[in-house]
Each structure stands twice: as C-alpha cells, then as structure tokens.
Nucleic acid binder design. Structure first.
Length: 541
RNA sequence: GGUGCUAUCGUCUAGUGGCCUAGGACAACGGCCUCUCACGCCGUAAACCCCGGUUCGAGUCCGGGUAGCACUACCA
C-alpha cells in the first residue's frame, strides 16, 4: 500500500538527488520573460534563443511571458517590438504571447501572460506567505528607508534590523489593521531566516552556496500599485506555468538563493525548476556589460530591429534594418557563449537545435565581436540565390534612384544578374549598391586615384580606336567582344592592362568592378559606346 | 565596502591528467589568382593571469593571490 507520505518521500528524494529528477523526465517547459521597458537588447535575444534551442531539443514548450510589474517603466510599443523581433528571428513561441501575422495573440491554458493582468492571482500567495509567517507587512516609507541608508552605511533590511523598523513584527495586529484601514501604504517583505547556507544548483556553474545573512528582506508586494515585485511574480508564475528550467542572464545569479528560499516557503521545492545562468555579453572594447551606448559609440546595432521609443522619442538602429539576415544573427549569437564540440561554426537553426547543450555554454562573459557578425552575414548572403537577393536589393535600389528612376532596361532578371556579379564582395544587401551603382547610373565623375594610376597619355587615343573597333560590331556577347578586342590589343602591342583599365574607367568611373565583358554585357552596345564617348570628352589630365 | 561568479592568441573559442611542439574561426599581415577593386585560396604572427601544492606527468585537479565582471531598490 503506497500512502501519500510515501509519494512525498519519493519526491523529496528526487529533489535531493538530481540524477533521479533528471531521469524522471519532467516535461521541459522554459520561458522567456522580458520586461516591456524598451527595445529588446541583443543579450536578451540570446537568452531567448538558448531557451528556444533547449525547449526544441527536448521536445518541450517555449513560453513567453511579459513581466510588467513596474508600471513606471512601461514603454508603449515595447511588447510588440519584442514579439516582432522574435518572430523575425524565427524563435517560435508555443505558449503565451506571440506574433501572428503582425497581430499579438495569446495561446495556452496558463494565462493571462502579462503579469499586470494576473494581479488578483498574486493576492492569495502573498496571503499564504503572511499566514505562514514567511512574510510580514512593513510601513517604512521610501524616504525613511533612504534616511536609514544615509545614516547607517551598508544598511540592510534583514533579521538584524527589522526589529527596529515600522512593520507588523514590531506593531500589534490591531495597529497594523488600523493603519491599513486608514489607507496607509505598505509593502510585504519576505522574512529571510538568518545564517543559513542556501544551496543553488546551477546547470552551468554547478553548486553555488550563499549565506542567507547577505540576503535582505526583499519587498514582494507593494500596496501602492497593488502589484507584486519581480521576485514574487516570477516564482509564482513559473510555478503556475509549470516551468521546468529557468535559463536567464548571470545578473540573476545573486538573487537565485532568494528564489530558492521562496520556493521552499511556498512548499514548492519538489517542483522547483532547474536553474542555468548564462554568461553576459560584454563591450567589444574595455570591460563591462554591452549597452546601447556602446552600439552608438562604435557604430553597430545592439537591437534586433529598429526601435522608435515613444517615451523619449529616440530611434535606435536594428540588425534587420542594417541588412542582416536573421539566420546570420542567430548563428552569430548562438556562438557567443556556446560552442559545439568540433570546429564547426556555420549552423542552421535545425543544427543548433540538434547540437545545443547547456553544459557546453561558457562560464565567462563574451565580448561582442561585431566584425565576426559581419562575416556571418557574408556567409549567409552567399547562400541566397541571385533572385532572392535581387528582391531584397530592389527597395535599396529604388531609394537610390528615387529621382532618376529605374532605367527601363533594368528588369528583375537583369538585376538578379547584376547581383550575381557583385554579391561575393559584400557583407550586407545595402552594400550591393556601392558595388553595382554604375550599372544603373552612368559615371558623372572619374575617380582621381584611378585616373592617376590607370589613365595614360595614350589612353584617349586607345579609346578612340576601341570605339572605332566596337562600333560596327553586331555580336555583343562577351565571347565575341573578347575575340575581337584581345587580338587587336595584342597586334597593336598596347598592353592588355593599359587598354582594359582605361576602358573600365570610362564605363565605371573608377578602377573597380567585375570582369569588363560582364559589364559590357549588362550595359549593352549603345550605353557602352556612349559612356566611352562621354569619358573622352570629360577626362582631362 | 560586502557577497557571488569568472580567468587559453587582440576577439569568439577547442581542450574534462599523457593524444598540446596548445587546434579552429574573426580581425591583422604576407603571397597566389587577375584588365581593376573585391571575393576566394595558401601562408605568417599571435595565448594557457601569478605563486604554491597534488602527481612519474598539469592548460586540465587543489589552495592562495591578482584581475575582471555581476549583484547589493517599493527595477527587472
């Protein structure tokens, strides 16, 4: 006969010895729980990615919950931004809030998924802690606390000091009730037991032990806005939403013991999630956490999408708008803090899901290397077909040609052909313009350095002769032109480099670009000859 | 200040006691290719934070330093 006590004891053993709890194969459920306080930072994106990879690999669920318990820091549009960014990157949400064709939708049985909408459900848990003596009510005002901190250095609201403060531990029940009835504002604080070693098992760092003396009696709930703080809401929601693994940034490691204590106070230690604290993303130069300012200073985005902050009116650049491909951003981010067992560096999302594992995540912070990010984008750009790239390039093209308009002979097929000629030399789609501008606009000026080096005394003479040679030519194919021009150069002994570079300057305006016959092929006979004539008139030494 | 985490080329990292004369990638530099600029290919330079200990043997294990970072709110 198996009694309830037996089951409890078994669960206790499972919690005590991790090996058993792993073999129990609890359904994997992870969550990404951002705050809508602005654009989603690239470090947050990586946290979301690792959660997603972990969930997919274990056939589990990826949840998205909005942690908006601080009404003062709310930024309009931030929530949409976060969901849109994840959608763009291909990080799929199984439960909670997600983007569906540009509209926010909520899916799942554990909702609502915004903490501000879960207000009522936190009340009973605050009460539970109060009733069980794990928490108490405090009336100290922010000003009083500030004064206390100014008066006593290193002041901490804890077992040593709470007896001197204005709270339900130092007042009669009647006085507490009276104050609340009078509408006095209060907070509920967690009562941390002193001098206890709290063990946190971290999947990346192993056992972390912190003495409870350094923990303060954290505020769990504030009556002012009738909302819990992060710590309470987070634990309650993770429990209610049956989260199995909490994968979050290293900045949370110091408060993990508090969270463990909270799980215990609620009596939820048997189903407490596993923790994994990810290393931080650091500044490329110097030390410290990567911040928005670093991006501005060093000239690269730290946000996935461009963000228009409705609160302060600022605009921040994004990876998407800078021409990044989502698969490149994913690959780049995945390798910042994680590495497979071999030398492989190019991973599709599917391969990442296959190979990802938390025990191969680094323990130390990773400096953000923007140059490597460019390289990843280059790799993924080359994988795209010319047609796909042409579609992405056309908006850029139209932007550049706004006044001039697209020449009629530049149809989509031709654009794809042009893209194919220059794509291997760019890292980003917008850079295609820098490489291919002369296909669309005839040169109006000629690069000085190129002229100095490649435009010789005889060049006008050569170009005149070349013009005469090309004018009667009917077959304008690359092969035909090559067969016509090369023997002529050889016969006249002008030198291939001399003639071709001068020719190139006429057509391009500088000493750059793809093979010359590829250029004449796209330009066509009429435009080619015209450009040489114009150059002959305009180039003066 | 206190507590915790971390420590291999400039950067991301491989490395789980002998396969390490420390491997790969980005960036740098040099060469090749070539009508140009790129791309690409080939190559060069470049690291185990310091001091002890354990061991026949330490980048790898242990201790102590040092340094960096994070946290230390009625923010998350």
């Amino acid at each position: 006969m198996i009694s309830f006590a037996h089951v409890r004891f078994f669960l206790y053993l499972c919690a005590k010895f991790r090996i058993i709890s792993i073999t129990m194969e609890r359904k994997v459920r992870v969550r990404f729980a951002p705050s809508p306080t602005g654009a989603l930072h690239i470090g947050g994106v990586r946290t979301a990615l690792y959660n997603y990879l972990f969930a997919r690999q274990h056939g589990g669920d990826m949840l998205l919950r909005i942690e908006d318990t601080d009404s003062t820091r709310f930024v309009p549009g931030a929530e949409e931004y976060i969901l849109e960014a994840l959608d763009w990157l291909g990080i799929e949400i199984d439960e909670g809030l997600r983007m569906n064709n540009g509209k926010i939708e909520a899916v799942g049985e554990h909702g609502p998924y915004r903490q501000s909408e879960r207000r009522e459900s936190y009340h009973q848990y605050v009460k539970q802690l109060l009733d069980s003596g794990h928490a108490y009510i405090a009336f100290d005002t922010p000003a009083e606390l500030e004064a206390k901190r100014a008066e006593i250095s290193n002041f901490q609201y804890d077992a040593r000091t709470r007896e001197q403060m204005r709270n339900s531990l130092t007042m009669s029940a009647e006085e507490v009730a009276q104050r609340i009835a009078n509408g006095e504002q209060y907070v509920v604080r967690f009562k941390v037991a002193p001098n206890e070693d709290v063990h946190v098992h971290d999947l990346i760092r192993g056992e972390v032990v912190i003495n409870s003396n350094i923990l303060d009696d954290k505020v769990l709930y504030k009556s002012a806005d009738d909302l819990p703080t992060y710590h309470l809401a987070n634990i309650v929601d993770d429990h209610l939403m049956e989260i199995s693994h909490v994968i979050r940034g290293e900045e949370w490691l110091p408060s993990a013991p508090l969270h463990v204590l909270l799980y215990r106070a609620f009596g939820w230690q048997d189903t407490m999630p596993e923790f994994a604290h990810l290393p931080l993303l650091l500044k490329p130069d110097g030390n410290g956490k990567l911040s928005k300012r670093d991006g501005d200073r060093l000239g690269f985005p730290v946000f996935p999408l461009e963000f228009h902050n409705q609160k302060d009116g600022t605009v921040s650049s994004g990876y998407r708008e800078s021409g990044y491909l989502p698969e490149a951003v994913i690959n780049f981010l995945a390798l910042l803090g994680w590495h497979g067992s071999g030398d492989k560096e190019l991973y599709t999302m599917e391969e990442l899901i296959q190979d990802f594992s938390l025990d191969r995540v680094s323990k130390s912070g990773a400096k953000f290397d923007y140059e490597k990010g460019k390289w990843f984008n280059h790799q993924y750009l080359q994988l795209k077909s010319d047609e796909e790239l042409a579609q992405m390039f056309i908006p850029v093209l139209e932007e550049h040609l706004r006044d001039a308009g697209l020449p009629e002979y530049r149809d989509t097929d031709t654009i794809a052909k042009i893209v194919g000629l220059v794509k291997d030399r760019v890292n980003f789609v917008p850079e295609l313009w820098d490489q291919a501008d002369f296909f669309f606009v005839a040169p109006t000026s000629y690069d000085e350095k190129s002229l100095k080096k490649r435009w010789k005394e005889d060049s006008p003479q050569h170009m005149q002769e070349l013009l005469a040679l090309l004018e009667p030519q009917e077959d304008w194919s690359a092969e035909a032109l090559d067969a016509l021009v090369m023997p002529w150069i050889a016969e006249k002994e002008y030198g291939v480099g001399i003639v071709m570079n001068a020719f190139r300057i006429c057509l391009v305006g500088a000493a750059r670009g793809p093979h010359i016959w590829a250029i004449t092929d796209i330009l066509g006979k009429e435009e080619t000859l015209k450009r040489v004539q114009v150059a002959l008139q305009n180039i003066h030494e």
